[in-house]
């Protein structure tokens, strides 16, 4: 379903993604983890055609990223971290616009949008009358998630999808991911919320400085490294081991 072949991205002299190579079969939920600046978002942007790789390529749903970019985009859904939308459109106008870009007929799009509204507990009146600029962060995130899934893509990339969602919406969303995976959808889930990743994902890939550090089932990795939790494993392999002591030292600088 997703196969990276030495995917590399340089920004000038800086190597953001360094020959990344892995394979994800259909129906798997993969957590893509890494500290800030590890290259997660850059990888996702390359895989969705938003950035051109410096070298290497990837195969997504049987299509080559470099030679068949439009076919790849048709099969892929992406929920970016930024949550950017056109703020002067209403939620409905925005989603109908996105549906049209994927060639979904307007009637079918309207039905699909209503299904998402029901799932996210959003009112149709709000969606059709209020401009996106006036939405709360959580409502906007729901619209962005909907826009990424509207065309029923077999492969979906999520970049910090829970940011802004309330607890109920987050629980529902996690259940949705697992159901989608059971139905054969492949999901790549990038996040810093490690306990969610641990619970939701079948497999985690940890990268740092653009390189693959670890790849495997969360429970197996935790056991093999003797870490106890995914969070401890993460700090262990990404050099964050001394954070607690540093935090204590820093807190002392606040003392009057």
């Amino acid at each position: 379903m997703l196969h990276l072949h030495s995917l590399t991205k340089n920004f000038g002299k800086q190597v953001a993604v360094d020959g990344l190579e892995f394979y994800v079969p259909a129906g798997q939920i993969v957590g893509l983890l890494g500290p800030n600046g590890a290259g997660k978002t850059t990888t996702l942007k390359m895989l969705t055609g938003m950035l051109a790789p410096t070298s290497g390529t990837a195969t997504l749903c049987g299509h080559d990223l470099l030679t068949e970019p439009i076919e790849v985009k048709r099969k892929v859904g992406f929920v970016p971290e930024s949550g950017a939308v056109y703020e002067s459109l209403t939620g409905l106008e925005y989603l109908e616009m996105v549906a049209a870009l994927y060639g979904i007929p307007s009637e079918a799009a309207r039905i699909r949008i209503k299904q998402f509204l029901a799932f996210f507990d959003l009112g149709f009146d709000v969606l059709s009358e209020k401009l996106l600029g006036a939405y709360s962060k959580g409502m906007r995130r729901k619209v962005v998630i909907t826009s990424g899934l509207l065309h029923n893509p077999p492969l979906v990339f999520f970049d910090e999808p829970l940011d802004g969602l309330d607890a109920n919406a987050a629980v529902g969303f996690k259940a949705l991911l697992q159901s989608l995976a059971r139905d054969g959808h492949t999901i790549v889930y990038s996040s810093h919320i490690l306990d969610v990743v641990e619970r939701v994902c079948d497999r985690v890939i940890i990268i740092d400085k653009g390189r693959l550090l670890l790849d495997g089932k969360p429970e197996e990795l935790v056991v093999s490294h003797g870490s106890g939790t995914l969070e401890r494993l993460f700090t262990q392999v990404t050099g964050g081991g001394e954070l607690e002591r540093r935090a204590e030292d820093f807190a002392k600088t606040f003392a009057k």
Binding site: S88, L89, E93, K130, A134
Partner: peptide, 17 residues
């Protein structure tokens, strides 16, 4: 639409903002 409405109005309802 974006040209006529602007890209980031202060919010509110479609017919007002």
């Amino acid at each position: 639409t974006l040209f006529l409405r602007g890209r980031s109005p202060l919010g509110g309802k479609k017919e007002k903002a």
